[in-house]
Amino acid sequence: MSLLELRNVSASYGPAQALFDVSLDIAEGEVLALMGRNGMGKSTTVKAICRMLPTGGVLRFAGHDLAPLPSHRAARLGIGLVPEGRRCFAPLTVAENLTAAARSGDWTMARVCELFPRLAERSGQVASTLSGGEQQMLAIGRALMTNPRLLILDEATEGLAPLIRAEIWSALTRLRDGSDMAILVIDKSLAELRRVADRAVILERGRTVWTGTFETLDAATTDRFLGV
């Protein structure tokens, strides 16, 4: 049974429709890559799942209908978001960022700091003074502190130095292997997605145009929909 199920989802920004027909499923413990070129609706799909936009179609999470829920209620069901652009609570320290989001469960501050030792070193430092990579680690840690059943990462490695990106991907691999949390990951690095994700969904102009495993993803499809 799917943990997250989207069927024929549509969404608009005011009069501008951004999603027309998005369908996808994620099972418990599965890692799904959401791919597509810029402006094809990946981040809008994330916003739809997190209830940041009014939507049409079917959105179900762990048996609950997401459509009538406000954003915080969806998050409390177990959807943890690492938003594009990190967006930490800038004037709060690392420890305070993590505490503000904390909910009871397996993920504690100690466990987050074990995943990202840099956060332990910087625990008393104000978030706005962290490097981009550290802010990204904090954004992931903050989402984990909500003890999600589904972790969504929207362009988590964008604009980071190669070493930091490698550290983030390594952490994601450990998350995949060490928990039964489902992960929905959006990223531009096809090679890394291929290594981390079980399956992929490709969006084109607000529609799901391809779903499958990476073994079945051929060069013609990547060339046509991803421009790679």
């Binding site: 943890g80 978001l81 502190m145």
Partner: peptide, 9 residues
């Protein structure tokens, strides 16, 4: 918005 995304009302 960010607060809501981590489940705060």
């Amino acid at each position: 918005d960010r607060a809501q995304a981590v489940g705060l009302d």
